[in-house]
Design a protein around this nucleic acid. Structure first.
Lengths: 185, 185
DNA sequence: CGCTGAACGGATCGGCGATCCGTTTATCCG
DNA sequence: CGGATAAACGGATCGCCGATCCGTTCAGCG
């Protein structure tokens, strides 16, 4: 890649990171380009769609969360690991506004740029869930898809200004429904 | 109101009802006007904003749900009443696509056309919740705001194509977290 | 150096919600 | 019944959006 193209690309991602954190995933592309000091066409050449831009922005975060799941999968308590990972996932979503809807759409559409990252993340969560279920500390009638859906719902609550103040407590409520406490044999 | 105005207004609401059910709350206003056989300006004169249109469309549903809550508040079991009302609320949201985000925004903004309807609905739910809490069959560390948020989150899940298949089961999961079973004294 | 293809961005397109304003028409009253 | 009048109408227009086109510029290599 040419040096000037690389510079513009990096600048666009930096600007997009700030803008998405402040104004959410629906920020105007034209505005993004202006803030980065490039033309709209340049932005759209580097990232042909809004989704492609967000993919580049979010990919590393997804990979970190997936790695975190694998790290926790090797830790002592299956219950603690699952709970800690849920917490990490939900709190991460507060970084970018509107990211939850994006993920829900990406999981649905196999052609989405984010599809692979999302399914990998979901699978990582499923493994943590299954381990906790095997240990008898997570309710057995849940699967990975449903765990992912619950994470998304909690993240969505945190994204809504009206519900955000309750989001922390509601996380505890839902977590208590997922985790069943120590094994009862 | 002049007879022709009344006719157009009714026609617009009919068309909007279908369109919102099919394509969600973000349907193009221009398209709505076309489908109703009127000019865009006519649609916007009757309903100055999209929100005003949706308010007219949803108001009666809100009133029905509120009335249903009051009816259930007089029924036998506090637990059954709360559960039945939650079910009614969540299943109603499947009628119109995208309505959940609208409600979350309306609760936040006191100037919204839907604000009053939403707060009334929330208060109606809070009364059912408090009755179940007094009977010891709902967890005590929840308030009306949080109950409303949980309903919205479940409704949101049902609105996402990727999560909709799990929505029914997840309702049971979350409901089990709200309800604590028969009073344990 | 000079060439050349990659990268650039202004201009343009169709679509959106909102607004303006000249035209039509339902309604009321003489 | 017929004319006045205000209400209702909708085409045209505005500023915004994302997307695309295409002539210009310049980075990098032989």
């Amino acid at each position: 890649m040419r040096a000037d193209a690389r510079k513009n690309r990096d600048q666009l991602l930096t600007v997009a990171r700030e803008a998405v954190a402040e104004q959410g995933v629906d920020t105007s592309m034209r505005d993004l380009a202006r803030r980065a000091g490039v033309g709209l066409a340049t932005l759209l050449r580097h990232f042909p769609t809004r989704e492609a831009l967000l993919d580049a922005l979010l990919r590393t975060s997804f990979e970190e969360l997936t790695a975190r799941a694998e790290e926790l999968a090797a830790s002592g308590s299956a219950e603690d690991a699952l709970l800690a990972w849920l917490r990490d996932c939900v709190s991460w979503t507060t970084t970018y506004r509107g990211v939850t809807v994006l993920m829900a759409a990406a999981i649905e559409d196999p052609d989405s740029a984010l599809h692979a990252s999302c399914t990998t993340l979901r699978a990582a969560g499923a493994r943590l869930l299954e381990r906790a279920q095997a240990a008898g500390t997570a309710r057995g009638d849940l699967d990975g898809d449903e765990l992912f859906a619950l994470i998304a719902a909690l993240a969505w609550l945190g994204d809504q200004p009206s519900f955000a103040p309750s989001a922390g407590h509601l996380f505890e409520v839902v977590a208590s429904a997922i985790l069943t406490g120590p094994a009862r044999v």
